[in-house]
Simulated scan of single mutants.
Amino acid sequence: MVQNAMSATEFYILKYLWSRETPATFSEIMTHFNEEEKKEWKKQTVNTFLTRLAQKGFLNIDKSGKRAIYIPSVSRKKYYEDYAQQIIEDSYEGSLKNFVCAFTENHKLTSNEKEELLTYIHSL
């Protein structure tokens, strides 16, 4: 899913939708960004971003009721898992070991971090 990269603004909108406990209507999205976040976004601009998120597979738009409802089609957890996997594939030849080595080269793990990492690895 990450290969369908999104713009910073699309990601900003998706993070807002993830933060909600319920799906959002268009007017709720507009109110949040224009009144709470102090943006001055036009309806057409927001609609374009929402449409792009749907086209890229990050958002479902339910138009069955009076108003369209916007629902993330991927959870925050799943998005970041896919994103991390894509980084490992693209930058570390698909090797988690290579990633860990690169990450820890200039950042020495504490004894506690090593213990936690080993416990995690043994649980796989």
Rank of each mutant, 00 (worst) to 15 (best):
R76L: 12
Y79G: 02
K38I: 07
S19R: 14
E115C: 11
Q85G: 03
K114M: 12
L118H: 08
L50A: 00
G65L: 11
T110A: 13
D82T: 09
Q85A: 09
L96N: 09
L124D: 02
I69A: 09
S75H: 13
F58S: 00
H122F: 02
K42C: 06
I121M: 15
L117E: 05
Q44R: 15
L50Y: 01
R67F: 13
N4P: 06
K108C: 11
S91F: 09
K39P: 00
D82H: 11
R20I: 06
N60K: 11
A84L: 13
K78Q: 10
W18M: 10
L117H: 03
T25G: 10
L59N: 01
W41R: 10
P72N: 04
T9V: 14
F99H: 02
T104A: 12
S73T: 07
A5F: 07
D62T: 01
R76N: 10
I61G: 01
E81A: 09
N4E: 08
K15S: 08
A68E: 05
F26A: 07
K108F: 09
K38P: 02
S19V: 06
L109C: 10
E35T: 06
S95K: 05
V74C: 05
K77P: 04
E10K: 11
G94R: 05
S111Q: 05
Y70N: 03
E93V: 06
L118T: 13
I69E: 04
I71H: 01
I69T: 01
Y83R: 03
D90R: 11
K39D: 12
M1H: 09
L59T: 00
A54V: 04
L14N: 00
T51W: 09
I87G: 02
Q85S: 09
S7F: 07
S19Y: 12
W41E: 13
T119G: 02
L53C: 03
S111M: 08
I121G: 14
L117K: 06
Y12G: 05
Y12H: 15
V2Y: 02
L109W: 01
E81R: 10
R67D: 14
F58P: 00
T31K: 14
L124P: 00
N106Q: 08
T31I: 05
Q86Y: 08
L124K: 04
N112W: 13
T119S: 05
I87V: 11
E115L: 05
T25C: 04
Y70D: 00
K42A: 13
I29D: 00
E115G: 04
E116Q: 08
T110S: 15
E40S: 06
Y70I: 11
H107Q: 15
A54K: 06
S64Y: 14
R52C: 10
I61K: 00
F26N: 04
P72I: 01
N34L: 09
N47F: 11
H32T: 08
K97L: 10
S123Q: 07
Q85N: 07
T51N: 13
Q86V: 03
A5E: 13
S19L: 14
E21D: 15
E28V: 08
H107E: 09
S95Y: 04
